Computed example of a mutant assay.
Amino acid sequence: MSKESRDFLEMAFHSVRCFGDDGRLDATELGKILAIAERDGVTDANELRVLSNIIARIRPDEIDTAMKAQLTAIARKFGIQVPEGTSA
Rank of each mutant, 00 (worst) to 15 (best):
V50L: 05
N46E: 13
E38Y: 05
V50E: 05
G85N: 13
M11G: 00
A12G: 04
R39H: 13
R24Y: 09
L48H: 05
G79K: 07
L48S: 04
E62M: 09
L48Q: 07
A12W: 10
A12Q: 12
E38C: 07
T72K: 15
K32C: 03
C18Q: 00
V82F: 11
N46D: 14
T28V: 12
A88I: 12
N46R: 14
H14Y: 08
T86Y: 04
I54V: 15
L71R: 05
D61I: 11
N46T: 09
S5W: 01
V16N: 08
M67H: 05
K3F: 09
R17K: 10
V50Y: 03
I80K: 08
G20K: 06
L48N: 02
V82I: 14
G23V: 03
R24G: 02
G23H: 05
K77T: 09
F78R: 01
G31H: 02
R17S: 06
N46K: 14
D64L: 10
T43L: 03
I63G: 06
I33F: 00
G23E: 06
A35C: 04
D26W: 00
R17W: 07
L51K: 03
A35H: 06
K68Y: 11
G85E: 14
K32V: 02
R57L: 14
A45K: 07
G20T: 06
S87G: 09
E10C: 01
S87D: 15
P83W: 14
R59P: 03
R57P: 00
A75L: 00
I33S: 00
